[in-house]
Design a protein around this nucleic acid. Structure first.
Lengths: 192, 192
DNA sequence: GTTTTTGTACTGACCAGTCAGTTCAAAACG
DNA sequence: CGTTTTGAACTGACTGGTCAGTACAAAAAC
């Protein structure tokens, strides 16, 4: 795996993300992706074997990018501050790669979708990051008794996705800070 | 419009809903829908003109069904009680028609999707119902100052969708009441 | 000299949409 | 009554286009 091949793969990822927002994954053709990336069709098959292979690798690529950024926000200060930074970083990621969250919401809850297995793994990756901060809140006895941490983490992740998409699609004039504050209002309502 | 044609259309709607959950709208073929409905392919085109036409009508059919049920929950008692009933009704609807919310989530934020115009309209229909109850809360001065009602309504609707789907897909053993209570925890955190 | 990419041409499965012909129920007729 | 007509509803084989995937020789990159 040379760095040249690495660069080609990245070009294909970015091209796919650019196109996936408007047309979705299923409506996307390999020819279009290759053209958008400025690459021959055969290159896709040389590097990924199939369209599925490309998408699968893309999902991992995107989630790793997001997870890395979220993990970089962790401090040992107030968990609520960490969560706020993570929400902010997530919103920034989504506005940077609008196509990616579209793919996630489109495919995440489709059973048995073509990429469901990969997505289940990736969902776990993100949710475990959120869970960790909620756990710290709980350790400090700042969550009400009824709250189930895995459920709350899954809910928070989903809410972020959906609110961010709604922001981009229907209320694009709002600022990221406004949107972040709306989400934090929910979190703070739940936490003490 | 005879009652025979009416029944055929309903059969096609129900069949589409049954199939859409697993394969999505784009991956769905008119042949499959027709077969599932026990009807010839031509019938789809006789009744709806195109696959798009069928889907468009289906979206309206589903949302009207949901909106009707939500509106039936409105009382002039405590707005929070109304919201709780509406959340419950929505969750029931989603578990009754799992395919429908999959479609909504997959297509709602795709711009410019084939059905985006219709979906924008339908989103307004549901959100206005939620907004009305939030407005009543606000009139009673039970919402914090920062809360923007349209934003909160959009967020609540999206959260319901996503949490319900996550429930169906990844945590199917939880009861509807548990899920409803998690959502109400968020609402109550926001309201007083 | 090995890995990676290119360009072009091709295949075959799949699928939206069409259309000539058939069924059906109800109305008009005798 | 029973028979005929009418138009709406439905059928399913067929068509034309699209697209994932293949083939491969030659070039470029390292």
């Amino acid at each position: 795996m040379s760095s040249r091949a690495e660069a080609t793969k990245r070009k294909l990822f970015e091209a796919t993300l650019r196109l996936a927002g408007t047309r979705g994954l299923v409506g996307l053709t390999v020819d279009d992706i290759a053209t958008e990336a400025g690459v021959a069709k055969g290159t896709v098959y040389y590097n990924f074997g199939s369209k599925d292979g490309l998408v699968d690798a893309l999902l991992r690529y995107g989630v790793d990018l997001l997870a890395e950024r979220m993990r970089a926000m962790v401090t040992d200060g107030d968990p609520l501050d960490t969560i706020e930074s993570q929400v902010d970083t997530t919103l920034e990621f989504i506005s940077e790669y609008p196509g990616f969250s579209q793919i996630l919401v489109s495919e995440m809850w489709r059973t048995p979708g073509q990429w469901h297995e990969t997505l289940t793994l990736l969902r776990e990756e993100i949710i475990s990051i959120v869970k960790h901060q909620l756990q710290r809140l709980d350790d400090a006895d700042r969550l009400p008794d009824g709250v189930q941490i895995p459920t709350a983490a899954a809910g928070l992740f989903g809410t972020m996705l959906v609110v961010a998409l709604d922001w981009q699609t229907f209320q694009p004039t709002r600022t990221r800070v406004e949107v972040r504050d709306s989400i934090m209002l929910l979190v703070k309502g739940m936490a003490r």
